[in-house]
Design a protein around this nucleic acid. Sequence first.
DNA 1: TTAATCAGGACTGCTATAGTACTAATTATA
DNA 2: TATAATTAGTACTATAGCAGTCCTGATTAA
Lengths: 133, 133
Amino acid sequence: MLRISKLTDYSTVVMSYLAREPNKMHNARDIMAHTQLNLPTVSKILKMLHKAGLLRSQRGANGGYSLMLPPESISITQILAAMEGNVALTECSTHHSHCSIESICHIRTNWRSISRIVQESLSKITLADMLRP
Amino acid sequence: MLRISKLTDYSTVVMSYLAREPNKMHNARDIMAHTQLNLPTVSKILKMLHKAGLLRSQRGANGGYSLMLPPESISITQILAAMEGNVALTECSTHHSHCSIESICHIRTNWRSISRIVQESLSKITLADMLRP
DNA sequence: TTAATCAGGACTGCTATAGTACTAATTATA
DNA sequence: TATAATTAGTACTATAGCAGTCCTGATTAA
């Protein structure tokens, strides 16, 4: 039903928590306690967000994660992209797919524009917006 | 990656084909031939679209399907809804879900608004738009 | 040196999806 | 009226992707 995955959903929860104190380091255990997600999941999400460049990490004792950018500068699209790759409503919108009817399908470019429209409307929403109720 | 399902994708192909001759009846075999989808799949899609009220059907010999409304009056959202249910980016946006952190999650309403934004931008695109390259 | 913490994979079980098949109901037409 | 064509409805299976878990290694503050 045009869903984002649970992990992606959770990642916005994690990011929102970090955004409340953008300059403070938070370790996985701390985030777990405040989001009620379990540790392996939190840990997995943090690694993915870090790999995508949205978080800064510090190893070792007293280490942890913090936002790479201020909450106003991080869009929902970026979080989505970090967790799931680019927003593309159909397979053929991105790479050459294995869709069996690709050769005769005439609406591919239309789907591409539609994806772009969705992407643009999501990119206008930032993490800072998510903090407000 | 914020994808629609393949069946939904195919359903837009089927709908586009029907939209070219909105008043003519097309049977499943004919649609199969022109879309290069296989018969069981086409058949399944047509039944779903019919059940959702987007198609009119005629049983028996010389029967088939045709659009219930003119292409300008059918939006992408309607096709999406017919195939996958309502557009809702997160589980908690629709019904009370089994999300384990629902009780402490503060960003639920935000996701609900985001879903609405996506839904609105998709509802502006009609089947008639899909016919144009 | 030690304990705390992140990094990077590998693995498993579950669920949703795609695709298929079969039978019943309906109807135009010869 | 008989027949062939066609949709309606349901059930089944195999596959792929996702959520969740676990283990081992690397890094660093104290």
